[in-house]
Structure formats: structure tokens, C-alpha cells
Design a protein around this nucleic acid. Structure first.
Length: 288
DNA sequence: AGGATAGCCTGCGGGC
DNA sequence: TGCCCGCAGGCTATCC
């Protein structure tokens, strides 16, 4: 389930395959995972999905990321947003093929293939189709339409930003960390991990969180996300980077997926409950 | 209007 | 063996 660290690992690993390359041909196998837009900024309107709209004959100049979304920019102007949803892969077609040999399912669900001028190919594969591709005529249209409503990126979020966005909310802190308009990139895994690192209970109402605690929480978010990127992200089941490599961060999770097991700090059994529709695990001794 | 909830979708693992 | 059910979850639409 790609959250910010997994998406950043995909961005970094797919970058050498795309940067300064020309897209020779785009194969759209399932157009319903794509949405194309014409016009710029607030005058954007949805148009027919075509290979030309999906960067055919464009030269890729930059890969950006905000939260869980990747942006692909081109010399000619058009730009794509790639969102992996929860089962999406944006990867070297050869890496997907290699995995297909050991796992019959891997070859299925490839929705879009970008064939590059150097004969390499990158594909978007997404079995559950919670992800998608959004195409725009410009970088500014992409930013306006896909990024503008998101909060600050999780890697650089500050306590003051969290406090400004959420301190008056009566919601539980866990629910707020999952809200992409508050902070972009945190999902269920890293929300639980960050709250454990910050020693704050996920059930706490935002109105009861102090300025010092907002700082601690922001620092914990930045820390767990950076640590995860450094270990290649978390592979629970499906996640692999653009080269088909698994992450290792799941080996160091303190709470996620460890309900009922002993707390790594105090040894008492970890609590679990459904919060904001998500399984939430925490240590009721260590997290106040 | 803030906040809670349902639903989208596939694959996997547990239970019978 | 095989079927059914529950679960995983990012995000949007919808309702209260």
C-alpha cells in the first residue's frame, strides 16, 4: 500500500528510465484508469483519453512528487499525474515481466505502457484500480488540479502547520493524520508509526494536543517517512519499486501489523481498535 | 460546514 | 479440494 515513502522510492527508481527520454508510443489498454484534461488552471475540462494526451512524442524533463502523487513534466508542456492508489505499480516493463515468470498474476492488470525511444518501456499496473493517471496540458494545470488541495508534504511538514490546520478539530489525531488536506503522504502505516514515535495516543482529540506535541508529531512524521525511504519503503504484500525490488521498512515497524504483540519499548501487549475506518494499533502505556 | 460513512476493486488467507 | 467470507485501504461521493 504505497504511502509517501513507497511513492518516493518509485519516483527515484523510475527516474533513470524516463528522464531526458522521448515517449515514442503509448499503449492504453484500459482507458477508464486515465482521465485527460484540456485547458489550463481553473478552465480545465475533461476530454477523450488518447495516446497523444498521455505524453506520446513528448520529452520528459522532470519527475516530481507531492504526498502520494507523482508528476511527470515534459519539454513540450503536457504533464501527467500518476497515483498508485493501493495496489498500483509504475515500473520498468522488464521488471514486471521478470516477476510474471514466478507469479502468474503479475502479467495481468497492466493498463498503460509508455514505450520510449531507447526501446525501454515503463508500465502502469494496478489490480485494484484505486490508482489512476491524470493528464494535463501544463505543469501549472496539474499542480492546480491535483496538488493545490493537498497539505504540506510529509517530509517537510512542521508542527505549526499541523496545529494551524487541525488544532480546532474535534477529530481524533489519527483521523487527521490520514487527511491529505492536512498533511500529504501519510497513510495508515506511517500514521500509527509516527504516533508511536511521538508517544501520542491515536485516540486523542486534536483540541487537546499542545503546541509542543504538534512539534513532536511533525518531527515524528518526518522521521518515520525518511527512515522508510532509506530502507526502500514497506513491502507488506505487493509493493515493489520500479525495478521490482521489495522494501525492508516493514521489518522495523513498531506497531503497524503488530496488534496483541509486546510493545518494543515496554513489553505490554499492543492495543487495537478501528479508528477513522482503519485498523489502528498503539501502546496504551507508552502513548498518552 | 465539519465530520462520519459507504463504496469502489482484487487477491489472499482462514475456516469449514 | 473448494467455496465463502472478511480484510486490506486511498480517495470520492453522499449523507447527517
Amino acid at each position: 500500500m504505497p504511502e509517501l515513502p513507497e511513492v518516493e522510492c518509485v519516483r527515484r527508481s523510475v527516474e533513470p528510465l524516463l528522464l531526458n527520454k522521448r515517449v515514442a508510443r503509448v499503449e492504453v489498454r484500459r482507458s477508464d484508469v486515465c482521465e485527460c484534461f484540456a485547458g489550463s488552471d481553473e478552465k480545465i475540462k475533461s476530454v477523450k483519453v488518447t495516446p497523444a494526451r498521455l505524453l506520446e512524442r513528448c520529452d520528459i524533463t522532470q519527475l516530481i512528487r507531492h504526498g502520494k502523487q507523482i508528476g511527470i513534466l515534459t519539454k513540450q508542456g503536457p504533464a501527467l499525474c500518476v497515483h498508485l492508489g493501493m495496489s498500483g505499480q509504475f515500473a520498468d516493463a522488464k521488471a514486471i515481466e521478470r516477476r510474471a515468470k514466478t507469479d502468474a498474476v503479475q502479467g495481468k492488470h497492466i493498463h498503460v505502457v509508455w514505450r520510449l525511444s531507447d526501446a525501454s518501456a515503463v508500465c502502469f499496473r494496478d489490480p485494484r484500480r484505486f490508482g489512476g493517471i491524470w493528464a494535463y496540458e501544463s505543469e501549472s494545470a496539474l499542480r492546480e488540479h491535483r496538488f493545490a488541495s493537498l497539505g504540506p508534504d510529509g517530509l517537510i511538514v512542521t508542527g505549526a502547520q499541523l496545529q494551524a490546520a487541525a488544532s480546532k478539530s474535534h477529530r481524533a489525531i489519527k483521523a487527521v493524520l490520514l487527511d491529505q488536506t492536512v498533511v500529504a503522504g501519510v497513510g495508515n502505516i506511517y500514521a500509527d508509526e509516527a504516533l508511536f514515535a511521538a508517544k501520542v495516543s491515536p485516540t486523542r482529540a486534536c483540541t487537546n494536543i499542545t503546541a509542543a506535541e504538534w512539534d513532536t508529531i511533525a518531527r515524528a512524521i518526518r522521521h518515520v517517512l525518511n527512515e522508510s525511504i532509506a530502507t526502500g519503503g514497506s513491502t507488506l504484500r505487493d509493493y515493489v519499486n520500479a525495478n521490482g525490488e521489495r522494501g525492508k521498512n516493514q521489518e522495523t515497524h513498531a506497531v503497524y501489523g503488530r496488534r496483541g504483540k509486546p510493545c518494543v519499548v515496554c513489553g505490554s501487549p499492543l492495543q487495537h481498535e478501528t479508528l477513522a475506518q482503519r485498523t489502528t494499533v498503539w501502546c496504551s502505556k507508552c502513548q498518552q
